[in-house]
Deep mutational scan, measured.
Amino acid sequence: SSQSQGISSSSTSTMPNSSQSSHSSSGTLSSLETVSTQELYSIPEDQEPEDQEPEEPTPAPWARLWALQDGFANLECVNDNYWFGRDKSCEYCFDEPLLKRTDKYRTYSKKHFRIFREVGPKNSYIAYIEDHSGNGTFVNTELVGKGKRRPLNNNSEIALSLSRNKVFVFFDLTVDDQSVYPKALRDEYIMSKTLGSGACGEVKLAFERKTCKKVAIKIISKRKFAIGSAREADPALNVETEIEILKKLNHPCIIKIKNFFDAEDYYIVLELMEGGELFDKVVGNKRLKEATCKLYFYQMLLAVQYLHENGIIHRDLKPENVLLSSQEEDCLIKITDFGHSKILGETSLMRTLCGTPTYLAPEVLVSVGTAGYNRAVDCWSLGVILFICLSGYPPFSEHRTQVSLKDQITSGKYNFIPEVWAEVSEKALDLVKKLLVVDPKARFTTEEALRHPWLQDEDMKRKFQDLLSEENESTALPQVLAQPSTSRKRPREGEAEGAETTKRPAVCAAVL
């Protein structure tokens, strides 16, 4: 046999249950609850290399294929790409003598399909299967379609040439079993990697079954959420508030809700932002270029202005709740996480202390139980975000031990490091100062900020419009641009040419 590394010779191994799959997660993409704000000051410096380099560890398999027929071997997927077919160049070659004697062998292509993985959001991997055969590759009886790919989820059954000719079961060793999710959700989405997690739940990458488009699904544990919100009269209202707010909003710089499922837990389906959180971008770069800050901040102002015009105060604006559309420097941003939002009543007064301390406005800290506050709290938070983006460190921090965090904020005395700000323009610093004003009545509004000289930049605004146009074009394009080929190089076993392929839609398939 010419099988590559990772293939075992026996096809009769006992199949494990899916609970053996491991679970991976990374930083929070968007969480309903406010958790302790991640610290920006503690960015690790590059460490000196050791005298002796450690040995390379043996790579762990990321997936496993269990053979369902004699003549096929099990495969431990270690590499990122595997070709399957009769050709000797394939990493998994159909060359077992037992297999060659079967009637089905002649229906398999020289290069029938490939399984591979690509880097997705949060640097996690996504597994795909890609059909290159004349007679078809099927996943859970659905045709992939020649020249098309679809994501592979845990426990997928792979069939060759005929939908009933099941050859492998695919085990993704990095994700959960699909069966743990409600059927209504599974009918519409293929669940994938964990993108982030918080005290009350997690955010998962998923794929729409009909279109193969990526989405983010925010899962909120009702049990954990009820415990964490025990002081509230009705904890469920917080989730329902977020859903109702998101459904009503329609702005290019605000995250869109696509679906909602109320089962044992809450499942909020949101558009996916491939670039992750602004927080991670700031930490990764230490600070952002001023031109990049301007492009992002302009969009934040437009989003918050839209919220305020619609009578909504976000109340928890922070870099973790600003998501980026891509890994590119120039990209769209979207505001997310409306769990603490407040729809303005007639009095415009709110007395609930919520939000993240580092970003809270002075009037929030001094008015607990005594007075109210209004939309100006969001403008203060925007000032803190702009400060961080321009400088790479927070204006107020618990680690300045000589003054408490509350006193720093209520006095408006931010930590100004001259040598850092020497590289920032006077106009940018002036806008920061106009937003970090203790008196909410004297603080800049979103309208005033948008009129500030720093943002009178036609090149930046043109760039934003171009990015918007690109997004609109990409969302308007159909996901499947061509029909699967019906040509046949070899006959199917026991049926006429093209008899099955043309009847089945290529579900969740995307043209390369």
Results as ranks from 00 to 15, higher is better:
residue 332 L to P: 12
residue 370 T to K: 11
residue 489 K to M: 07
residue 267 Y to A: 02
residue 277 E to I: 02
residue 325 S to N: 01
residue 356 T to H: 00
residue 359 Y to W: 03
residue 489 K to H: 09
residue 383 G to H: 05
residue 320 E to G: 01
residue 277 E to N: 06
residue 331 C to D: 02
residue 480 V to G: 06
residue 487 S to R: 14
residue 278 L to Y: 02
residue 328 E to L: 05
residue 348 S to L: 14
residue 386 L to Y: 01
residue 272 L to N: 15
residue 324 L to Y: 00
residue 482 A to D: 07
residue 311 G to D: 13
residue 266 Y to E: 13
residue 457 D to H: 10
residue 290 E to Q: 10
residue 286 K to C: 09
residue 338 F to G: 03
residue 431 L to F: 08
residue 372 G to D: 15
residue 279 F to S: 05
residue 265 D to H: 14
residue 471 E to V: 02
residue 489 K to N: 09
residue 370 T to C: 08
residue 374 N to G: 13
residue 368 V to D: 04
residue 349 L to A: 13
residue 434 K to I: 00
residue 261 F to R: 05
residue 332 L to M: 00
residue 264 E to K: 14
residue 258 K to G: 09
residue 317 L to D: 00
residue 262 D to I: 11
residue 329 E to G: 11
residue 387 F to V: 04
residue 290 E to A: 10
residue 345 G to R: 11
residue 377 V to D: 06
residue 440 P to Q: 05
residue 446 T to N: 07
residue 396 F to C: 00
residue 423 E to A: 11
residue 491 P to S: 07
residue 415 N to Q: 00
residue 508 C to A: 04
residue 259 N to D: 05
residue 322 V to F: 03
residue 330 D to I: 11
residue 307 L to E: 06
residue 289 K to G: 06
residue 354 C to H: 03
residue 467 L to S: 03
residue 279 F to Y: 07
residue 381 S to F: 00
residue 321 N to W: 04
residue 334 K to P: 00
residue 390 L to R: 02
residue 275 G to T: 07
residue 244 E to N: 15
residue 505 P to S: 13
residue 419 E to L: 07
residue 264 E to L: 03
residue 276 G to M: 09
residue 442 A to S: 11
residue 250 N to K: 06
residue 430 D to L: 14
residue 376 A to S: 08
residue 331 C to S: 05
residue 256 K to I: 12
residue 333 I to S: 02
residue 274 E to K: 07
residue 250 N to P: 12
residue 381 S to N: 15
residue 466 D to G: 15
residue 312 I to D: 00
residue 386 L to P: 02
residue 302 L to G: 01
residue 264 E to S: 09
residue 335 I to K: 03
residue 270 L to S: 05
residue 359 Y to S: 05
residue 410 T to Q: 15
residue 420 V to P: 13
residue 367 S to G: 13
residue 275 G to V: 02
residue 324 L to W: 02
residue 503 K to Y: 13
residue 484 P to C: 08
residue 267 Y to W: 07
residue 273 M to I: 09
residue 374 N to T: 07
residue 331 C to M: 02
residue 465 Q to H: 15
residue 510 A to I: 13
residue 455 L to I: 10
residue 277 E to S: 01
residue 329 E to K: 12
residue 401 T to V: 09
residue 269 V to K: 01
residue 421 W to E: 00
residue 390 L to H: 02
residue 338 F to E: 00
residue 287 R to E: 15
residue 270 L to T: 10
residue 353 L to M: 06
residue 479 Q to Y: 13
residue 362 P to D: 00
residue 251 H to K: 11
residue 322 V to L: 07
residue 349 L to S: 07
residue 338 F to K: 04
residue 371 A to W: 04
residue 351 R to E: 06
residue 296 Y to N: 11
residue 259 N to I: 08
residue 437 V to L: 10
residue 352 T to I: 02
residue 296 Y to D: 04
residue 475 T to F: 02
residue 342 K to A: 00
residue 460 M to L: 02
residue 262 D to P: 10
residue 504 R to L: 11
residue 367 S to L: 09
residue 254 I to E: 07
residue 285 N to D: 12
residue 474 S to G: 00
residue 372 G to W: 14
residue 365 L to D: 04
residue 512 L to S: 13
residue 326 S to R: 02
residue 304 V to K: 09
residue 320 E to A: 01
residue 416 F to M: 03
residue 296 Y to W: 12
residue 336 T to P: 00
residue 304 V to T: 10
residue 428 A to V: 06
residue 468 L to N: 05
residue 437 V to C: 12
residue 390 L to F: 01
residue 358 T to R: 15
residue 473 E to G: 00
residue 275 G to E: 07
residue 390 L to G: 07
residue 512 L to G: 00
residue 449 A to V: 04
residue 391 S to L: 15
residue 310 N to C: 11
residue 266 Y to M: 13
residue 477 L to F: 01
residue 287 R to N: 15
residue 267 Y to M: 11
residue 487 S to I: 11
residue 472 N to A: 00
residue 289 K to A: 11
residue 354 C to S: 02
residue 409 I to T: 01
residue 372 G to H: 03
residue 398 E to V: 03
residue 464 F to I: 10
residue 462 R to W: 12
residue 246 L to G: 01
residue 495 E to I: 14
residue 406 K to N: 13
residue 335 I to D: 00
residue 510 A to D: 06
residue 450 L to F: 07
residue 343 I to K: 14
residue 330 D to M: 05
residue 320 E to S: 00
residue 431 L to P: 02
residue 445 T to P: 15
residue 283 V to N: 05
